[in-house]
Design a protein around this nucleic acid. Sequence first.
DNA 1: GTCTATACACAGATAGAC
DNA 2: GTCTATCTGTGTATAGAC
Lengths: 264, 264
Amino acid sequence: MNNLTSFKEFSQRVSLSRQDICREIFEDNRQHIKIKKEKTVVKNLVRIFDAALKISNQTGFQAMSMRSLSRETGLSMGGLYAYFSGKEDLLEMLHSIGHTTTWRTLEENLNGLTDPVARLRVAIQTHLFLSEVMQPWFYFSYMEARHLPPTQKERSKNAELETERLYADIIDDGVRQGCFAVDDVLLAASVIKAMLQDWYIKRWKYAKRGVSVDRYGLFLVDLVEAFCLAPEYRKRKALERGDDGLFGPAEGRPAGRRAADRGN
Amino acid sequence: MNNLTSFKEFSQRVSLSRQDICREIFEDNRQHIKIKKEKTVVKNLVRIFDAALKISNQTGFQAMSMRSLSRETGLSMGGLYAYFSGKEDLLEMLHSIGHTTTWRTLEENLNGLTDPVARLRVAIQTHLFLSEVMQPWFYFSYMEARHLPPTQKERSKNAELETERLYADIIDDGVRQGCFAVDDVLLAASVIKAMLQDWYIKRWKYAKRGVSVDRYGLFLVDLVEAFCLAPEYRKRKALERGDDGLFGPAEGRPAGRRAADRGN
DNA sequence: GTCTATACACAGATAGAC
DNA sequence: GTCTATCTGTGTATAGAC
């Protein structure tokens, strides 16, 4: 058992459609939304967020005019203001959903797992796959965080620190239990986050090259384990190589450090 | 010999003052600049770029009005237009300097080094230290790249791919020579870039925690080597530990994977 | 629930005085 | 070489018709 799964399995299991996301946003923001019929609201919110993310992620939220949003959604300028009280409101709605979903999904997927090695693997994969399902939202949150008003900016920084803390806690546990050997746990957690973020920030690069999210995930797990695992555990992993059965022998999975580990 | 140096030594050696940078920009853009006296131009360019980077990096280039730039620089709106023909021009000037400087500095510092292990160490450290010296410029280039007009956007993407290629070439060499054992060289290069970028993008985080750039650099080298080095070389490195003499025994250097490597 | 028409603030840019 | 004054386009937001 290596606790690894595929993106396909993950995305079917979590099943986060745009409608689902917009329904949740609607429920969190009933106060600000003038229209009351859920079906209408969800239908239009999907159009609004699709358009807003498309334009913003190309040129920046600031540069997205209400006129262009109106053109892209097919709704009139006046019509748009029935769904948010101003551009600031829209900005907040676009931000709010990412962190709560991440946190909830990570907790759901880590729930019940106690082995630090398994927890670290699952956290990385879950986080990565979620960022793939919600790529436009994650990209937006990352790029537009600095344009937030001070209070929300602080909240955004705390979100970064909290998820980082989650990784650090897992590694800390592992060090205490002897399966990991890491001296600077917080820095290790930081670079794990950095590598996870690179996937949704530089998607153009990985797409161009045909790197699948499965391959990227396995690569990350491999790299992180090469750095974190205590020597005895690294040897054990080397022995397990080649017959974990995931995805079959060749397609869709990176060779990782196989050559190196055989030498150990 | 471990090829590692300190940020202090680096910054004294390269000595890239804001005046130096602005002088270079002036020479590259004489056509667009109406004022001809170098001393005047450099003096004002320093003020303009200082202000532009300060405002842009807080709120985004798009959100920076010419009025606020005028206020921050002390120059009038009319006066500013003597130094660039429009906001687009300013944007291009802010972008142009980063990549050329990076490339030149990397080449200068790698020149003469042939051992892939040394080259990888020096590339990472040089790149990181340069990004520290020119932090506002690097941050700006990273965050504002997507607002560039298509042609320059393409150029910016190519810059990303080129530096990545540099890391990939070093690792490839090492694999051929047997000191590295990496299967997916390009992905390894990608995540090295991602971790380097995290330093200047999330400076607030590392500053808050008191992580020095020296410590971050040594951590990165350590992590990358844990993943890339062939097993025999990893053992050799473990033996060298503790008496490399850099920075003395304790202060300013991370313990790295010392504990783990002792177990090997 | 959605649209059209419009208010009015502020953006970038320039002409011409000093 | 720098400033003040001003032009013109575009931005967000709203009132009131349908």
